[in-house]
Write a protein that binds this DNA or RNA. Structure first.
Length: 213
DNA sequence: AACCAGGACGTGA
DNA sequence: TCACGTCATGGT
């Protein structure tokens, strides 16, 4: 089956996913289906609307590295509740403070360092969109995180390849065991229209499909 | 009670 | 380049 057909099949089965989850004012949950407060935004591609929301997505992308979203979201909510979910506060906070707050996401020492490095970088952007190479040159940002940031925070059609994607395509017989990141990414680039909405939904659907089964 | 979760980096070969 | 060790918490 083709890449495009697989998308149709997944979409039919699971519907729009509306990634990336955002917390909004007054909200204290990242769970899906929460309309009034944050959570996911089904069929609403107008987010992120502010720099703060863009930064929130970037932060989430770092916190969820090799970690379930359930755990990462706890760390994100801790940051939010302590008014630390912004660049200046993260730079101002001590390492020890951040260690405690993001602990549920695991790798708290590495992730604290990553958040501080990224915060400084984000301020330097002054609202501009980073290039992929700029992101990859940052300590703590690899290909998947860079693509997640570009796709979900900046609406740039970069397909996000994660462990689920590899397993999924391997099972479909579309890639070999040791296909590399860029090889897998090219498969989507070559077979899909470069539409950020399509890329956003596709990646989210692969994850949702894997979780459901 | 192992196993793994929406990875990335450091190292030695 | 590449294979492997390290980082860390908390769900099933």
């Amino acid at each position: 089956m083709r890449i495009k057909e697989i998308f149709e099949q997944l979409f039919e089965r699971h519907g729009p996913q509306g990634w990336w989850p955002l917390v909004e004012l007054g909200d204290l949950t990242y769970k899906p289906g929460c309309k009034k407060y944050g959570g996911y935004h089904p069929k609403d591609y107008s987010y992120p609307k502010t720099k703060l929301q863009q930064f929130e997505i970037c932060t989430g992308a770092i916190l969820t590295q090799n970690t379930s979203w359930n755990q990462a979201s706890k760390a994100l909510l801790n940051l939010y509740k302590q008014n630390l979910l912004n660049t200046k506060s993260i730079l101002k906070a001590t390492k020890e403070t951040l260690h405690k707050i993001i602990r549920p996401a695991g790798y708290f020492r590495q992730k604290t360092k990553k958040l501080k490095i990224f915060s400084k970088f984000f301020i330097g952007l002054d609202g501009k969109r980073p290039t992929r190479d700029q992101l990859l040159n940052l300590w703590g940002i690899g290909p998947e995180t860079a693509d997640s940031i570009l796709l979900y925070a900046y609406k740039q059609p970069e397909f996000v390849v994660d462990a689920y994607t590899k397993r999924f395509l391997l099972k479909k017989g579309l890639i070999s065991e040791k296909a590399k990141y860029n090889e897998i990414k090219a498969l989507f680039d070559d077979n899909l229209k470069k539409d950020y909405k399509l890329f956003q939904e596709y990646h989210a659907l692969i994850v949702e499909n894997a979780k459901r089964k």
